[in-house]
Design a binder for these strands. Sequence first.
DNA 1: AAGATATGTTACTTTTTGGTAACAACAAAA
DNA 2: TTTTGTTGTTACCAAAAAGTAACATATCTT
Lengths: 193, 193
Amino acid sequence: MTKDRDLTERRILDAVGRIVECEGFEAVGINAVAAESGVSKILIYRYFGSIEGLLSKYLEDKDFWLNFDIADLPQGDVKMFSKQIFRTYITMLRNSPALRKLYRWELSSKHPSINDLRQRREETALKIIGFVCDRSGESFDRVAGISTLITASVSYLCILGENCGVYNSLQIDSDAGWEKLLETIDFMMAKSL
Amino acid sequence: MTKDRDLTERRILDAVGRIVECEGFEAVGINAVAAESGVSKILIYRYFGSIEGLLSKYLEDKDFWLNFDIADLPQGDVKMFSKQIFRTYITMLRNSPALRKLYRWELSSKHPSINDLRQRREETALKIIGFVCDRSGESFDRVAGISTLITASVSYLCILGENCGVYNSLQIDSDAGWEKLLETIDFMMAKSL
DNA sequence: AAGATATGTTACTTTTTGGTAACAACAAAA
DNA sequence: TTTTGTTGTTACCAAAAAGTAACATATCTT
């Protein structure tokens, strides 16, 4: 029995990660975390206060938009820039089980740290939309509307893809379906923006 | 103690309805249903076999697309027809808590009767998309892509609206936000179809 | 070394949830 | 009227979940 709080906390958070990726946030209970991490429950309470606190800690650095930096993308052409954002978002969501579980969880949970997340996301969104407006000459409402349509549908379809293979005859659980969707998105943006 | 199985079943199903509308399908457990309906659990088992069976029964006639009839909509102009479908869908979702809860539940549950639902929805979707293709001359993939983008985002935003007021600076929990969205959808369809 | 504090273990209580056994009352068929 | 089957009540059991009390051991300070 070595005594190392940092290590123990890491073990607990790692266990949360595994549970989330595999079964989602809904499955993160004290017993589950204790069992998965091999740490006794009482330590979880001591170090994180509650499951709420544990999840808040876990959520730090997990969201896509929060860690999004405009500077990471090519600045030249606005159309390319916009396209690239959506592509990156899709890639992230399709490759990260934890992110998909997070987006799913948000739809049914009123966890306090989710509000934080949303507010900070709104700030990022505002910045990006403003950026695109400035360079494209489109109205804010137009850009916001299109962005909303695209990101919301992408979020929905990525979540759904975990349980369901086909939506409107599109193969949403495979690359084939997503290429068709990307084609549609590109087409739509070409026409609308 | 009057003996009336039909009445009892009705009482149970009504209780399910109240629970679903208020807390969602996730909260439909035997104890909850028994308490809400005032019927003893064992009768629920006897009459519906299990919670699964109970939910399957409840789900009959609940989905939007399953009860959708092309004949209900104006047949004349294809553009109007398409617009009208999406408008109707939005109105239904925004006015029915149970429907929203169903769409939310689908994202995380593997309940057997959900597969039925999806398959039958696919059939309806195929019909509608085919119908629009025939009359508009657009390709199947184009129509399917646009429909997917719109319905998926609408579903997502309606579900999200229950816990979250703003998305991309759009007020998704109020008519104001939805009018802007409708405007975007109309614009997009005008350009794309 | 002695004491104080942080760390960890074990075993327990309570609550909730799903599930069942045993019996009581009513209704219709024999 | 007796029998049979359906409807309903009560009380229980078992498992899973959250949460806590009491104790043991390591680490650091003085």
